[in-house]
Structures are given as C-alpha cells and as structure tokens.
C-alpha cells in the first residue's frame, strides 16, 4: 500500500474523475520519462498497473508454497494417525470398514488432504497479501483525497525525481483531463486530515 511512505513525502497530485483519462495520463507521462509514484483509485483501473510499470507480484509463488505445506500437513496427519507409517500404532490400530491400515488406504485420505491444501493456500496467501500490502486491523488510512475511495482518482508524482518543471507537468496533467492539480507537503500530517 506504500501508505506509510506517503507521510514523509512531498507529492504532486492530479485529481481525475475517470479511469480512462487517468490511464492515458499515466501512459503519456511515462512516455515523457516521468515516473509515477502511485495512483489511488476507487476501483481497479484496467491495465493501469501495467501502464505504471508495476512488476508482476510473486504472491502466486507464495501461494504455491503454502499449498504444498498444507498438502504435506494433511497427508502427514493422516498417515500419522491412521497408519503405521511412522511407527505410531502402539495400541489402537483402527480397522474400520475393512480398510487397510498401511499406505494403501491413501484413497481415503484424498478428501481431507485436498481440503487442507486449499485451506493453507487460501489463508497463507491472504496473510501474505495483507503483510505485503501492510494492511492490518485498526491501521490509520492515508488519504490524499477523501473521495479517492468513492469517485475520484488520484495521480501522485514525486517532484524531486521530475525531469521537467512543475508547471510543464501541470499543463500535461490538466490537458489529460485532470480536475485539479496541486502540490502537497505530506510532512504536515494536519493537512492530510
């Protein structure tokens, strides 16, 4: 979410009311060598992430690992409790329905193993997502515009990395259909409120 970073930054802000305009603005700016710090939108604007040059997240890989862990947990739990694979049958081998008590009972383990794989994948990935995005309950949000979760789209650019003057940038952004353009020193937390 890069939320905590905003507070210490001085940002140039363009306010839009339409995803297509914002998308075009980002494409245009990137063609002119202006890096976009971030955009804040009430909805996922199609392909905006690609236009901004966001690298594809590796969450998928994390999910795969979580799934693998779930799979192993599931199969181990069942082999441990239902078979003698780990030498754990001291007193109570459970022979139920004539099912074997060694590895041949594996077909019985398919459902639970599958469910645990899914459970671990889903929650593992959920946790990874929240952690990576620095989201947690009770955190204070950093909004640039109070309507950025409603109907306004915010374009944020760092002025210190700018290859043109702020005035030039303002002209471009306004030509792309921005409703408003201003500079905001977000060191001043009061202003953020």
């Amino acid at each position: 979410m890069a939320a905590k970073n905003i507070l210490k930054k001085n940002l140039l802000i363009g306010i839009f009311d339409d995803g297509d305009k914002l998308y075009d603005a980002v494409v245009n700016l990137r063609e002119r060598g202006v890096e976009v710090f971030d955009c804040y939108t009430p909805y996922p604007v199609h392909n905006l992430d690609r236009a901004m040059g966001v690298k594809r997240s590796r969450l998928v890989f994390g999910a795969f690992v979580c799934g693998l862990v779930g799979f192993l947990c599931g199969i181990t739990l069942q082999l441990y409790t239902m078979t003698d694979t780990f030498g754990t049958f001291k007193s109570w081998p459970m022979i139920i329905g004539g099912k074997p008590i060694d590895w041949r009972v594996i077909p019985s383990f398919v459902p639970v193993t599958f469910e645990l794989t899914i459970l671990f994948t889903a929650f593992g990935m959920g946790i990874l997502f929240f952690a990576r995005s620095r989201m947690v309950h009770g955190i204070e949000e950093d909004l640039i515009d109070i309507r950025q979760t409603d109907d306004r789209l915010v374009l944020a650019i760092e002025p210190d990395k700018l290859s043109m003057t702020k005035e030039e940038l303002e002209t471009i952004v306004k030509n792309q259909g921005a409703l408003d353009f201003y500079e905001r020193n977000l060191n001043n937390t009061d202003e953020n409120k």
Partner: peptide, 22 residues
C-alpha cells in the same frame, strides 16, 4: 475492518492476483 485501505494501484495489482488465485 477496512484495514487502512486507500486504493493504491500497487495494492490493487496484488489484490487482483489474490482474487484470481482464490
């Protein structure tokens, strides 16, 4: 319950991937 959501595009990017995998 909003967990500090601010609609950053970087988060949306991850969010869409997570939704797809879920």
């Amino acid at each position: 319950f909003s967990m500090g959501w601010n609609g950053s595009t970087r988060t949306w990017h991850r969010y869409e991937i997570v939704a797809l995998i879920l």
